[in-house]
Simulated scan of single mutants.
Amino acid sequence: MDSALLKPRFHLDLWIGFTVQSWILDVGRPVVMLVLPADWFPLNRPGAAEYLHLAYNITTPLILLKLIERSPRTLPRPALHLCIIAVVMGTSIHLVADSITQRLLLIGYQLHLSVRENPIMKNITPSSLIDSFELLFYYDESLGHSMCYIPLFLVLFLFFSGCFTHRKQEVKMPLAAWILLPPSAAHYWYLITEGQTFILFIFTFFAMTAMVMHQRRRGMIPEINGLFLLYSFSLALLLVALWVACLWDDAVLRRKHPGLIYVPQPRAVYTLHLRQHTSPQQPDRSHAAPIQM
């Protein structure tokens, strides 16, 4: 109760650091791949995008640890430490699998198609190697994303659970928070669409909303940092809805993302609709010589 009576302070340094490093090291990787393609570097060594990924694997856990230290309430340390370890492992798995995926793109792999529907996979001998590539994409899109994003959203929710103050306190977001809100929400949109974490995101958002309703009955309201997180998630959900609405009738992407939850990946949209227009000089390698291993 004593901490709830203290005047809340917006953690501008942490939120700027989290947003900037996410945009440069996470969202910026596809941009670097376009400006500095992987075939400009030795294909058996990391490229520019992989070095950004390495930096992201280091900075993200550090910022999450600092965020935990700023929490107004005492959080369960063993659970938080396990979350940080899982984030490191998940981002590391994703780094390795994503690096191999970039090499496959150079020989004609198309992200908007499944592994078995890709033309280059039909040329692989022996055909049983397709199972190995399916395992690779399982590590990339399922296991790696789950180990990275589940603890990430859990840490954000646990931090949010401590961001409440007494109703008598005047809570008003500063101008810096409003300026930082759009890029923060856009980053969460990228995590949802590219990371395919819509179910995880929506459950986290519903849990945050339920906690707000529960705390209001106790005479508590979200403080500045809690409002910033809540507004960022709300705007991100709106961006996802607009994204899905624009691509609702795309039959090819619906084959890539079957089922009730349809959230296309930005990279799949790029390889399907934009790649041939932005790089017409690149030869079509989808009918290259058979891959033998």
Rank of each mutant, 00 (worst) to 15 (best):
L129P: 00
I130Q: 12
D131T: 06
D131V: 07
D131H: 12
S132D: 08
S132Q: 06
S132C: 05
F133T: 11
F133P: 02
L135I: 14
L135S: 15
F137Q: 08
Y139W: 15
D140C: 01
D140N: 12
D140Y: 12
E141T: 13
E141N: 14
S142R: 10
L143R: 00
L143E: 00
H145N: 10
S146G: 05
C148Q: 12
C148I: 01
I150L: 15
L152F: 14
F153D: 02
F153W: 13
F153N: 07
L154G: 09
V155R: 03
L156H: 05
F157A: 11
F157L: 15
L158E: 12
L158K: 13
F159E: 03
S161Y: 04
G162H: 02
G162R: 07
G162S: 12
G162E: 08
G162L: 10
C163S: 14
H166M: 12
Q169G: 00
E170G: 00
E170H: 12
V171T: 06
V171W: 04
V171Y: 03
M173K: 10
M173Y: 09
A176K: 10
A177C: 08
A177F: 06
A177S: 14
A177M: 10
I179R: 05
I179C: 09
L180V: 09
L181P: 01
L181H: 05
P182Y: 12
P183W: 13
S184A: 14
S184W: 03
A185P: 08
A185F: 09
A185I: 07
A185T: 10
A186M: 15
A186W: 10
A186G: 11
H187Q: 12
Y188T: 13
Y188C: 11
Y188L: 15
W189H: 13
Y190W: 15
L191H: 04
L191F: 11
E194M: 01
E194Y: 04
E194D: 08
G195D: 04
Q196I: 09
F198S: 02
F198P: 00
I199D: 10
I199S: 06
L200C: 03
L200I: 14
L200S: 11
F201W: 07
F203G: 02
F203V: 13
F205Q: 04
A207D: 08
A207H: 09
A207R: 09
A207S: 15
M208Y: 01
A210P: 02
V212R: 13
V212E: 10
V212W: 05
V212C: 14
M213Y: 05
M213V: 09
M213C: 06
H214V: 12
H214D: 07
Q215Y: 11
R217Y: 07
R217K: 15
R218P: 01
R218W: 04
G219N: 00
I221N: 04
P222T: 08
I224E: 08
I224Y: 00
N225E: 11
N225W: 01
G226K: 07
L227Q: 12
L227Y: 00
F228Q: 07
L229N: 03
L229C: 06
